[in-house]
Amino acid sequence: MTNSITIVGGGVAGLTAAIACAERGLAVTLHEAHRTLGGRARSTPGPYVANDGTHVLYSDGEPFRWLAERGLVQPFARPSAGELAKFRFRRDGRVRVAPPLALLRAVAHRRLSAPVDEPFGDWATRRFGPAATRAAAGLVGVITYTADPGRLSAAFVWERLLRATAPGWPAVRYVRGGWSAMVDRMAAHARSLGARIATGERVDALPDGPVIVATGLDAARALLGDASLRWPSGRAALLDLGLRADRRDPFVVSDLDEGGFVERYSRPDPSLAPAGHTLVQAELPAAADEPVPAVTARLEALVDVALPGWRERVTWRRDAFANGRTGAVDLPGFSWRDRPAIDRGEGVWLVGDSVAAPGMLAEVAINSALLAAVKLSPSTAAKASTARD
């Protein structure tokens, strides 16, 4: 019998699980295969500090509140009135100040529920018309990493659309210093609670005793020997740019034409770029089987429209392609409850951004880890260890 728990994976899900389990009185050991913690929450070391993707947190979600209660996201920045005044939209190939009126009318129906079993494109076109549906799909492209959100479950897309367009002061929050700063605080907090965190330790066989697997589904399939651990995800081109600053640049350009996004992350957090420079992170979902060079060229064309003259101002650049590592997307007929279960039985739990937990993107990883931890205590861990022996 034991009151210990082993965690495999040191990303946001694994670190959340480590903290939550340690708070419940468990002896925690976390193994991370890489030399650095964070998984997809890592940031570049500088002088341009770029997250691995266009990361933000939403303060209206329980994961943000859980992190904030422990001082793990502080200090953070929120969009100022001046930054919001520089929010732009690409529509019909041009950068505009406002989204189409049809989209504003659609998202005003905030009490409306969307069906799980119907594609968003069909449902939204019937309810709001084609113009609003196209704009809505473009707006959530960056959230879903999907070139055609219209094919996804209407309930899935509608929930994300309402979160992104919530009235009042925006809920978006930026962790100052990049997400690696948050990861460092999470690791330090877990260690202060007694957790042992080891990096550079790859786990190739499922450990004895109760274990939380906090990896992507590809690694989890191999570790658990379960070929059913699959779920659709997105694919997108990512482009990070260090530029000489130009005060005429917009803060954000949301691409309603193709679902892309261009954002000056150093505007709310100047520490992300050297003085006189700016950090831009851009994303564009790739169509099914679209070659990487083709979607990268489309993304560069979006940046051409958003930031004219950017090519002459580049001092640093990083290209990446996210394929199947962007969190779960739900097709018609499926919801988050249908994704791979967290409790795998016999003292094994699976957490991450593609499992059966609610929320958007990283929120799924945090929520799944908290759901796993709430099932654990010294007594339940001991029973799980007995079941595995």
Rank of each mutant, 00 (worst) to 15 (best):
313 R>W: 01
149 P>C: 10
94 R>M: 04
318 R>H: 07
204 D>E: 14
8 V>S: 08
256 L>D: 08
157 V>Y: 02
319 D>H: 05
124 A>K: 03
62 E>A: 15
345 G>D: 09
72 L>M: 04
360 M>I: 14
316 W>T: 01
128 F>Q: 11
177 G>F: 08
269 D>T: 11
90 R>V: 03
57 L>T: 09
37 L>E: 04
132 A>C: 09
247 R>P: 12
63 P>E: 07
209 G>C: 09
262 V>W: 01
10 G>D: 03
165 T>I: 06
224 L>F: 02
269 D>P: 04
99 P>R: 08
139 L>M: 14
368 S>A: 14
382 A>P: 00
224 L>H: 03
158 W>P: 11
81 A>K: 15
197 I>G: 03
232 P>V: 08
101 L>H: 12
50 A>N: 04
165 T>W: 12
218 D>N: 15
22 A>C: 09
273 A>P: 08
279 L>C: 03
295 V>C: 10
245 A>W: 01
373 A>N: 12
223 L>M: 11
227 A>Y: 01
386 T>V: 04
341 A>N: 00
140 V>Q: 08
321 F>G: 00
186 M>Y: 11
113 S>I: 11
206 L>W: 04
135 A>N: 08
378 P>E: 08
364 V>Q: 12
18 A>N: 07
134 R>C: 13
247 R>C: 03
354 S>W: 09
44 T>V: 02
193 L>C: 14
142 V>E: 14
220 A>N: 04
384 A>D: 08
90 R>Y: 02
261 F>R: 03
66 W>H: 12
303 V>M: 01
11 G>H: 02
180 S>T: 10
233 S>N: 13
317 R>P: 00
66 W>I: 09
337 R>M: 15
334 F>V: 07
150 G>W: 03
106 A>Q: 15
177 G>C: 09
307 L>H: 00
216 G>D: 15
210 P>L: 10
151 R>L: 04
266 S>F: 02
140 V>E: 13
229 L>M: 06
156 F>A: 04
342 I>G: 05
280 V>N: 02
113 S>E: 14
332 P>R: 11
152 L>F: 01
215 T>L: 15
